[in-house]
Amino acid sequence: MSVFDGLKFRRVYSPIHNLDPRIKFIYVLAIFVIAIIFWELIPLIVLFIIQIPFVVLAGVKREWLRSMRGGAFLASIIFVTNFVVAYFAGRGLAESLENAIALTLRFIVLIESFSIFFLTTSPDHLGLALEQTGMPYEFCFAFTTAVRFVPVLAEEAQTIMDAQKARGLELERGNFLKRIRNYIPILIPLIVSAIRRSLELAEAMESRAWGATKKRTNLYVLKIHKNDFFLIVITIGILATAIFIRLYVPIPSLNQLLKGIF
């Protein structure tokens, strides 16, 4: 149950949640590009830090930390491989270390921005954004309906498992092959019920004039608000600064900087 709880969407209001998903997506792409064009540690640290206000404003700290933790394993692999390769290629310890940290941080910045996007965009909004960017309606409908039914199916799977356990099914019994076979009594009812459910859904859709007109209207419409405008300006600002620095400003490595100070 608890695994699926994360998939239950909840409507939350915050200045970040209310932003137009399309603009948010452009922002994520911009961060993505910037993270790719820098391999030095200092700008990546800056990039990591400037995103934290978004997390705070959106009030999703706990969820955000959880997703960062999720990326920790991959991040440590990236760190170790980069460090080992650089070190054995004959670059100094300090330099290898800095290089490995920078590349790991690049990865973390990518996770950071994507998780801000997905944590603050309701599936509803995302579907709407897809629709308004010209995606065929059938596709958007399939997307939101899938999101709607994930928790329902998860619950159903649990009930089926209980029902079969009550008839003496022991999932953990036997060797590997036997264990896979143990899942048949769960999968078949789940599939049959999903088919039955989809038929009922189709019936209900038809009864509500599905496909009556090509020019479908929508209760909601995404409009660019003041805050969205803000985000555009911020995004362009960050992007322009980053490109300018990349092209014209030499970036010292942390090692050099530290040597300069002491």
């Binding site: 029902a163 079969q164 003496g168 078949i188 009812p189 049959v192 039955r196």
Partner: peptide, 22 residues
């Protein structure tokens, strides 16, 4: 005690038969 052992004594019929027939 395991569910399987208890189930020998306690039979449980779920609400929706489609959740168990396969």
């Amino acid at each position: 005690v395991s569910v399987a052992t208890l189930a020998r004594k306690v039979g449980f019929v779920f609400q929706n038969p489609d959740h168990q027939l396969f």
